[in-house]
Design a protein around this nucleic acid. Structure first.
Lengths: 108, 108
DNA sequence: TATTCTCATCGTAATAGTACGATAATAGAA
DNA sequence: TTCTATTATCGTACTATTACGATGAGAATA
């Protein structure tokens, strides 16, 4: 997406943005739902369920792993992907806190 | 970001992704925090606080308005941006529900 | 009417993201 | 060792996003 001046924002703001990115694409939402609900965890099963090419799914999994919200345990020749609970919990906290803070009363 | 085959995912998955996009950039997180905490709501004040050009801030505001999470009430020559509470609440529900659904117990 | 203030939009440049086919890598099985 | 199954990575094409300067639009005021 262009450049994004991460250095001018707080660590917290950048982390929120990063975690939000995990959910900012419908394919990744689908993957995370499947993993969270234990409907699938083997990479190949995800590929079968999702109407996307294997390379594309693998790319999304890599991004989710980079963010830290999933783990990938290799079990040759397969790889089992799972939700990384501490980071999932972090997301719960971060979004919960953010969305719970809403001053009402209008100014306009 | 390239193409994104929205038609192959559920309405819910696409909506989650859309709402997540509101938070998927640190500048938008900063804007939403300012609005939610009533630290600012006039476009010009946001521009003063954020170390970004006016055009860039305006672009982010437009995107947030497109998603529906903020409103823009014009009060010439100013524009007052506010959190759109129903959509904010929708985000709370959506992320809450999604992040609360986590089957534990390992499969790998 | 001319000016000023505020904000939106346009045009542009550069980077990031999405998707896929082809190919490489890895390890177990034959 | 050779083959097979599974997943990662590479290369490529195309679209989306980010950022900014410049300009336009709108309304109040001089």
């Amino acid at each position: 997406m262009g450049v994004t001046k991460t250095e001018i924002f707080t660590v917290e703001q950048n982390r929120v943005a990063e975690l939000a990115k995990a959910f900012a694409h419908p394919a990744r939402v689908a993957i995370l739902q499947l993993l969270a609900r234990k409907k699938a965890c083997i990479c190949g099963d995800l590929v079968d369920v999702l109407p996307l090419a294997q390379a594309t799914v693998s790319q999304h999994l890599k991004e989710l792993k980079r963010i830290g919200i999933i783990r990938g345990d290799i079990d040759p020749p397969r790889v089992c992907y799972c939700i990384n609970e501490p980071v999932w919990e972090e997301a719960r906290q971060v979004f919960g806190k953010l969305l719970d803070t809403l001053m009402v009363a209008g100014c306009c």
